[in-house]
Design a protein around this nucleic acid. Structure first.
Lengths: 292, 292
DNA sequence: TGCATGACATGCACTATCGCATGGCATGAA
DNA sequence: TTCATGCCATGCGATAGTGCATGTCATGCA
């Protein structure tokens, strides 16, 4: 008679982590525990259910069908737990404790930094965490409480408020501008962002000697290349100015995606998120000129 | 800066148990742990969330609104975990491990006992657990894998198969029958079951001296009283016969609720439940005469 | 063939968690 | 009042769970 107990809910979470991350080590890292602990918890669930959940093969743990089934249910348990935590945070009327904010690196570095400083001074009991990332973190899964995003993010359960409109323009480093002046007929090297890897029609018409020299998948890298004088970039005007680049007359200023503050509807009304929003909105209003 | 971690899922289950059972001791018993453990887990969740979930008053722990919110979500997590366990069991094609069966005490004692014995002999690796109870255990929550019930139980997600029809009739102990014969005009004392606390119309018409002497909320107690010669009972015929009571001609045999075998749809196809059903059905077919 | 890498198994020492025993503090009955 | 009961707090020894160090085994690259 083998012992058949209900498995511990925490162990189910571990099964889910192993399914998602594929190896004991990766799952352990995600859970913040040693990978041996993951192995032991998996073994414990298997014993409790009297079932094999993972085949131990030479290249790692391979899930069985039963493990998949557990994973589907555990994922729904996780969604429930996440919703719970969001609702608790949303109801929280205290201005203390953690607040996790995510925004693109360049926006933090060149625009948001002063607001962040003001905010931590105004609310010293709030423990502000920053996740600088271009990835759209999952606000449903509470990877962040609040996001500042360029372009409003899709998502049913999210709320947002537009902070400012933006325009983009062509910029280059001083050195590149000088070189262009010396050789007006030479080709113009453009550095472009992968997400919009075409030159605007206006550029092609006005400066037919334009050509795409490099394509970047990362805006930080592209900004660095522009500063080093590798060519002309099209970027939001706030960024070109902040990087000390010169605006060029190769194209008219074009509309660019707006800047939004976004949060899950559950968290939107919470005291901390509200306080942060109420500092952001006037800040962007005052700084509006930098973006257009 | 207080430590704000995601609470352990197992600890959420503990919050749910405390909400449901009202005291540390009761929750601890339900979870199979010491009540001090419950207290410590509650404290741990409160610390993780930086929230008071229960007010410690002189008469015990009183939940706050936040605790109620957690309870609602934890209940859904539990439903998910239960569904998972049901589906895993339902897919189980092995004839070993635990099988929990519930049935009314009297049915087990006087009818089912031999099937149970045959079953354990035929499937020695199945670890048969019996929960003799008149309560309708919650098959959704896996309080039992399979139920044998008098009258088909309501419930969306349950499946059932009728084992036999039944009739009820009037019975009394030999001693009471003798007393009736000696004093034919004396009042007839009926012992009735709470759930059907009226005498049938046929009885009133045929034996107007009938009266209700006692009302029972428990069929076992009523059976005992009848055996002790306290009066006449109306009960399923299998039971009157099994108890050695004499059938009386005070009323015609009446239809009584059928006997069903019932299980959750998820578990219905599992090997163990199927095996048990396949032993029950011919057994009741062979014994059909006992019930009508 | 040798070497580095990634994934897991195993054994040991540590620490967090647990159960138990004791004690306090209300409430209600004798 | 006195006693019994139910509920919880606290402290201590036992235990189960954890992290770390070490070892094995495949795979892939040079």
């Amino acid at each position: 008679m083998q012992r058949v107990d209900d498995p511990d809910w925490g162990d189910l979470k571990t099964v889910l982590a192993l399914l998602r991350h594929g190896s004991l080590a990766a799952a352990g890292q995600a859970l913040g525990v040693n990978y041996t602990t993951v192995a032991r918890r998996i073994a414990r669930v298997e014993q409790a259910l009297d079932l094999t959940l993972f085949e131990r093969l030479a290249d790692g743990y391979h899930p069985t069908e039963a493990a998949q089934l557990i994973g589907e249910h555990a994922a729904r348990m996780e969604a429930e737990a996440d919703a719970m935590l969001r609702q608790l945070s949303g109801q929280d009327s205290r201005l203390r404790g953690p607040l996790v904010i995510t925004a693109p690196q360049l926006l933090i570095a060149h625009v948001l930094a002063p607001v962040l400083q003001d905010f931590t001074k105004a609310y010293p009991d709030i423990d502000l965490h920053l996740r600088a990332s271009n990835d759209l973190l999952d606000l449903n899964r509470r990877e962040a409480d609040l996001a500042i995003r360029i372009s409003r993010a899709p998502g049913d359960s999210l709320m947002g408020r537009r902070l400012t409109a933006q325009k983009s323009a062509a910029f280059a480093a001083d050195s590149y501008v000088e070189a262009m002046a010396k050789a007006p007929e030479a080709p113009i090297d453009w550095l472009v962002y992968e997400a919009m890897a075409e030159l605007p029609a206006a550029v092609k018409a006005q400066s037919p000697q334009s050509r795409i020299a490099m394509v970047f998948d990362d805006m930080v890298a592209m900004a660095g290349a522009a500063q080093a004088g590798l060519g002309v970039v099209r970027m939001p005007v706030f960024l070109g100015r902040a990087l000390g680049l010169q605006p060029l007359d190769l194209m008219p200023a074009q509309p660019y995606a707006d800047i939004w503050v976004v949060a899950h509807a559950d968290l939107w009304p919470s005291a901390k998120v509200t306080a942060f929003r109420q500092m952001l909105v006037p800040f962007f209003k005052a700084q509006g000129a930098r973006f257009t």
